[in-house]
Design a protein around this nucleic acid. Structure first.
Lengths: 155, 155
DNA sequence: TACAATAAGATCAGAGAAGGTCAAAAAAAT
DNA sequence: ATTTTTTTGACCTTCTCTGATCTTATTGTA
């Protein structure tokens, strides 16, 4: 029980609950110092405990003024989207399948017409190809947008 | 947030908004003194935040009575998407450059906030990487959207 | 007029301040 | 005993800030 990784995980989840936005921002080095560990330990916790499958998105910036931001997704509110995440996410998605998914989002008024056109342009075969790698990339691109749609701070 | 560079950027953008001409003129050394930094810090801000890519022109004069002038370009007359195509499209585009371009389109009200968030999600490093191939792909993705924006039937 | 003095701004390399990656060692679980 | 999870450290990338040195414009003066 209670490995270092677990302690850090709990600490961060407590911070998330305390914040009413579901978003916290911190300095990787500060956190490492609090728990007296190497900074890369933080990355280990983030990637094993705060992955998108687990309902989190992590953003960061390097350099002076750098930060790590953890965003909790509210998957319960959007069962449809969450289901789509499991379908599209991490799997190969052909252009045709991708367009169908985008159309569905559009019909459900989750995406505007313009937004769907932009996304379709970006997953086009002429841009990213049609082989297996392209299909995987297409899945990841759509995945990224689905995750964005689940964010509370997405207006 | 709030590195020195960011503070100076905000300060200048506030001045620009306050001026109804979209042009401001200042003394580099005075500005440096206000923010208590070396004068070259001002150049850093100008080149990372007020480049022509980002919709600004910076003019200056040395010697006695020298000055720095920042001019905000407006794309009201709809021309410069094509110019952007040459800058961003076709070429390799880093995540940082891509985000700047998207921000520009957003500031010009060519993209909505949501649309820009979607596009940023899709050009993220975690999705398409950061090596040369990724930069090329990113350029193509942005290119595809720029072309879409130029289409007559795109409302 | 020519020349020096002074008053700006430009440039570039290097230091500093973050965070990321990856593989190997250590610990725990099976 | 073997496999999985955790922990560590060396090295990398990105962004910011500083200072020394260079260039250009104006002004005062012999």
């Amino acid at each position: 029980m209670s490995t270092l990784a677990n302690q850090i995980e709990n600490y961060l989840k407590k911070l998330l609950s305390a914040s009413n936005t579901g978003i916290i921002e911190l300095k990787r080095n500060d956190l490492a110092e609090i728990f007296m560990c190497v900074p890369s330990q933080i990355n280990y916790v983030l990637s094993t405990r705060f992955s998108s499958n687990q309902g989190y998105v992590v953003e960061s910036r390097r350099g002076g003024g750098g930060f790590v931001r953890i965003i909790r997704l509210s998957m319960d509110n959007e069962p449809n989207l969450t289901a789509m995440l499991e379908t599209a996410g991490q799997r190969k998605v052909s252009r045709a399948m991708g367009e169908k998914l985008i159309d569905r989002l559009c019909e459900e008024d989750i995406l505007s017409k313009r937004e769907s056109m932009i996304m379709k342009a970006m997953i086009d075969e002429k841009i990213i190809g049609s082989d297996d790698d392209a299909d995987l990339l297409r899945g990841n691109l759509l995945n990224a947008v689905l995750l964005l749609l689940l964010r509370d701070d997405f207006v």
